[in-house]
């Protein structure tokens, strides 16, 4: 009887692997806030076109205040990301001045190996420029945010590999700037957000048409928010696609190995009652 439990575990994993996430769909408070992301699930991967659009939004609407100190220019051209060409990235990097104590004058034009320069010299300066609020760095912001979840739903998330709470949070926050409901006071320099249910120091950063997309994607706040959320997820984990693809091979290998070992074990034990 107890001998069955590893098999049950293996079976549960197989179910988690091959049952589409939709089959395990479940309803709860936060369900509606979850978005469909191309990088969700076992076979998820980033959509380069979406990341390129998201980068455009980031550059035009976020980068003036928010840094991304762990992002290197070279990341923008590597496989599994926005996949800009190396030439584009070289030109982009050269537009930025990089602090470098080793060169005369203390700064030089950027190269692809450089990391994204911060828009402010230090936290104090950043606060002063933003009426006292510190705009957080975007390097891993998509991993530092999540939708709240309750027992026992997070157990289901283990099987669907839901890891997109960050982009879900960012998307919902960006599209839910609204007029404050009655009874909520909004001070000057504060902006009510219906998703967080609080006043934020950040003014609504996106408006319809503010970023011009090439190609057919709609120039709407909803689309901008979706694209920039995906982009920020990529910034937080540029190697996600590789990780998942390797993982799939590893799981297949382990299933094969476990199967063989089970046969070996059974053959050895067949002769002895136990």
């Amino acid at each position: 009887m107890t001998g069955k439990f590893p098999l049950i575990g293996a079976l549960a994993l197989v179910v988690g692997l091959f049952l589409p996430a939709s089959a395990l769909a479940y309803k709860h408070d936060f369900d509606a806030k979850r978005q469909d992301w191309s990088f969700a699930g076992v076979f998820g991967k980033y959509d380069p076109a979406q990341l390129q659009r998201g980068f455009q939004v980031f550059l035009q609407s976020c980068a003036a205040c928010h840094g991304a100190r762990l992002l290197a220019f070279r990341n923008l051209s590597q496989p599994g990301g926005p996949e800009f060409t190396e030439g584009q990235i070289k030109a982009l990097a050269a537009e930025y001045m990089i602090l470098d104590e080793e060169v005369e004058g203390g700064e030089r034009a950027g190269i692809p190996a450089d990391r994204w320069p911060s828009p402010f010299a230090n936290a104090l300066e950043a606060k002063q420029a933003n009426s006292g609020a510190l705009p957080p760095d975007f390097s891993v912001i998509a991993k530092a945010r999540a939708l709240p979840n309750t027992f026992p739903w997070w157990i289901v998330d283990y099987f669907t590999t839901y890891q997109e709470g960050g982009p879900d949070y960012i998307y919902n926050m960006l599209v839910n700037y609204a007029d404050a409901p009655d009874g909520v006071e909004v001070d000057a320099g504060q902006f009510y957000n219906a998703f967080t249910g609080t006043n934020l120091a950040m003014p609504p950063p996106l408006f319809d048409g503010v970023v011009e997309y090439e190609g057919g994607a709609p120039a709407t706040v909803d689309q901008y928010a979706r694209d920039v959320s995906a982009f920020l997820m990529w910034v937080a984990e540029p190697g996600l696609t590789d990780r998942k693809q390797l993982g799939f091979k590893v799981i297949l290998f382990l299933l094969l190995f476990a199967g063989l070992l089970y046969l070996v074990k059974r053959r050895i034990w067949r002769q002895v009652p136990h």
Partner: peptide, 10 residues
Amino acid sequence: AWFMFFAPDA
């Protein structure tokens, strides 16, 4: 491996 590759932050 499941957690390692598919839900390392879960």
